[in-house]
Design a protein around this nucleic acid. Sequence first.
DNA 1: TATCAAAGTGTATTTTTTACACTAAGTTTG
DNA 2: CAAACTTAGTGTAAAAAATACACTTTGATA
Lengths: 249, 249
Amino acid sequence: MKSTRETNNINPTVSVDCVVFGFDGSDLKVLLVQRDLRDNLDIDDDTLVLPGDLIFEDEDILDAASRVLLDLTGIDNLFLEQIGAFGNLDRLSKDKDKIWLDLVRPTPDSRVITIGYFALVNIKNYTIKPAGFAKHVIWKDFNEVGELGFDHNVILSEAIIKLRNKLYHEPVGFKLLPKQFPLNHLYTLYNTILNSTLDRRNFLRRILKTGFLKETDNFQEGVPHKPARLFTFVEKKFTSNNNQKFKFY
Amino acid sequence: MKSTRETNNINPTVSVDCVVFGFDGSDLKVLLVQRDLRDNLDIDDDTLVLPGDLIFEDEDILDAASRVLLDLTGIDNLFLEQIGAFGNLDRLSKDKDKIWLDLVRPTPDSRVITIGYFALVNIKNYTIKPAGFAKHVIWKDFNEVGELGFDHNVILSEAIIKLRNKLYHEPVGFKLLPKQFPLNHLYTLYNTILNSTLDRRNFLRRILKTGFLKETDNFQEGVPHKPARLFTFVEKKFTSNNNQKFKFY
DNA sequence: TATCAAAGTGTATTTTTTACACTAAGTTTG
DNA sequence: CAAACTTAGTGTAAAAAATACACTTTGATA
C-alpha cells in the first residue's frame, strides 16, 4: 500500500472519506481534519472535513481509505467498513468548497463521487499526527460537530446510523474500548451512542449472556470507589447473517 | 431524467448496476440481462449480467440507476436503495469481460467503479421489454444464477444479504407482492427468501401484530380450496432507526 | 469508624416466543 | 350428495426473555 501522495495517476473522479469514531469514556468523538494545503496557501478557510482523498488509479477503494488513515494516524489495519457512495451533483458546490478545490485540485471542476468508510478505534491507542495533507486533526465531540465541508455532514449522518445499528446487532462496541475494560464503561458507551438510559441490571445480564465477554483477574486501579473487574472481548465465530434472531443488545 | 443513451459526456469511470428482485409466488427471482451490443456485433457471448450502465457526467447516481431500469422495464419511480460501491481493481478482468469491453466501450481499459442498487418489484406488474442496450432480459431463479459477468456475483451476494436483513427489520416484503394478497403468500415469501420454515401460526400472529396489515373484504378467487381473505399493506410512519427494538418478523 | 459511590446480585411480574393442536370452509371425488 | 381433501384460520399451555425494582457488597475517603 502506498503511503505517500503522488501527483501522477490519481483518479480525479473518485475519492474516499472516512468517519472515524472514538469514545473517551463519556462522549462519542469523531476524527476531523481542518482542510488545508500541502503548500501553505494563504486562504482563510478553517472548515472542518472528514479525512479523505482522491484515490489512485491502481488502488482498491478500501486500500485508499486505509492509506488515508495511515497517513493521518499512523494506524494500519484499522477496522474499516464501507458506508456507501455519495455522488450528488451538488456535493462540492458550496462557495468555500469551490475555492479550496480551485487551489488544490488539478481539475477542480471535475465531478467527484466519494465513497464513505467508517472506523471504530480505541481513542487512547493512537496519538493523532497531523501528517500528510491535513494541518490540524482533532477529535470532535459528535454532538458538537457543526457544518462540515462538502457533503460531509450527510456522510456523517449515515455513519452514525450505521454505528447505532451495528451496536445493536454486532459485537462492535469493544472496538471503541481498551483491551480490558470494566463493564460499566461498556454500559456508558451504549447509553451514550444509542442516546438512551438502559436499565443497568438488565444490560449487564444481557451483555454477559451473549458470551462475548470474558472476565479477567484484573481490576480497575486508582478509582475512588470499589474497583470493578475488568473484562475482555472474546473473538467468537460471529456472522451477522447467520442468526437473524441474534440481538447483541 | 434522460432515458436515452448519448455518446458524449459519459463518465467512463463510474457505473451503476441494479439487482432487481421479484417473487413469483414460490421462488425469488432476479432480473438479469444478456449483455449484448447495441450494434449487432458478432461475438459469441451469452454471459448474463446485472442491468447497469456507465453514468452521465451530469447525472446523480441514483438517477442513473433509475434510468437503467426505466430503459429496461419501462418502470419509473422504482423503490431503489444503494447497496454500496464496488471498486476492486480486478472486477473487469475476466477474459470474456475484456473482449466485451473492447467492443463496446470507448475506453475499454478504463478502471471502472460501480455502484450497486437494489430494487423490489411485484413481478406481475411489469412486462420486461428488452429495450435499449440489452438483447435479452430474463427473470432468473435466484438459486439458479450461475456465474455472471464482471463482479456481479459479488454484488448479488451483497444484495441478498441486504434483502434478508430488510425483510427482518422493515416492512418491505409487500413490495414484492400485489396490492392485495392472502397472508399465506407473505408467509411463503418469508420462508423462501429467508430460507427457513417458520411456524405458520406464529408468523401470522406476529405479522398481524405489527399493524402493517389491513384486512379487506376481498377473497381469493379460483382456488381449489377455501379462499383466503386478502390483505393490504398499510403505509405507516416507519423509521427503521426510530425504534431499535422493532422487529418486523 | 462512618460515609460515600459505584460494583455487583436477586427476583417477582409481565410479555414474548415457541410448539403444537385443533376447527372452519370451500372444492373435488366416488 | 356425502366423504375426503386442502388450505384458512384460531386456541393455548409451557418456556424463555424482558422489565422494573431492590438490595447487598466493597473499596476509598472523610
